[in-house]
């Protein structure tokens, strides 16, 4: 039996707009093994953002079960979810979401502080920045860094707590082609060299091509799951 990091069973999500119920997810089930690089793909409105919010423990499913790293999370309260996000999930956003007032170093240190860690946070944050090749940019603020560098800071921030999964939501969406390739190369190398489980959420087939498996979402359901030969070749 493979070591499963993500188990999603019959998850539904229904939004209430006044008296109207809008189903965003209509029963989704899939699994992700530890060390996998998986893409979730779909057009806008397909429910992939909703799925990503649930995978990232930012939101709870209306029904169904979600087990993250062996921990059922569907019924946890807000503070318990915050703890899970802090320990088990690393986010990489399309628009980087760095705090503009803080230096790269402080930004990366932030999750450690919310983890309640008192000692060694500076060193861990520095190590994470060095791991993404930004050891020279510790004291720079986000507006002093290029888009690609900012996204690498964000990846360092996602990595710093050794999470079970990294959730990357359109990580190259705001980058030029070259920076985008660099960021993807970084994510792939993290996955391959350190066995980090990565879930990419994208509408871009070129980005999805980096993944070993692609979960296609349409109208709140899984349309199909494809295996990517090219990615396997890269992995081999």
């Amino acid at each position: 039996m493979p070591d499963l990091v993500i188990q999603v069973q019959e998850v539904t999500k229904i939004y209430r707009m006044g008296s109207v119920e809008v189903p965003a997810l209509r029963g989704v089930s899939f699994e992700v093994s530890r060390g996998e690089l998986v893409a979730i793909m779909g057009p806008s409105g397909s429910g992939k953002s909703t799925l990503m919010n649930i995978l990232g423990c930012l939101d709870r499913p209306t029904s169904g079960e979600y087990i993250l790293d062996g921990q059922p999370v569907a019924t946890l309260n807000d503070d318990q979810l915050a703890l899970i996000r802090n320990r088990k999930v690393g986010f990489v956003f399309q628009n980087f979401n760095l705090l503009p007032r803080l230096t790269a170093w402080d930004n990366v240190e932030l999750p450690l502080r919310y983890a309640g860690m008192l000692r060694g946070t500076r060193e861990k944050a520095r190590a994470a920045l060095e791991a993404v090749g930004l050891g020279e940019r510790l004291h720079h603020k986000p507006n002093e860094l290029s888009g690609g560098q900012q996204q690498r800071v964000a990846i360092a921030r996602a990595l710093v707590n050794n999470p079970a999964i990294i959730l990357a939501d359109e990580p190259t969406g705001n980058l030029d082609t070259r920076s985008g390739e660099e960021v993807m190369a970084l994510l792939v190398s993290l996955n391959r060299d350190q066995g980090t489980t990565i879930v990419l959420v994208t509408h871009d087939p070129e980005i999805a091509a980096y993944a070993e498996r692609v979960i296609h979402i349409r109208d709140g359901r899984i349309e199909k799951i494809t295996t990517n030969r090219a990615a396997e070749e890269v992995a081999a």
């Binding site: 990232g56 930012l58 807000d78 503070d79 915050a82 703890l83 996000r85 802090n86 320990r87 986010f91 956003f93 979401n97 705090l99 932030l110 999750p111 919310y114 983890a115 921030r157 707590n161």
Partner: peptide
């Protein structure tokens, strides 16, 4: 963002 990174209420 802070909440996504694990900040509690």
């Amino acid at each position: 963002l802070r909440k996504a990174l694990g900040a509690r209420k």
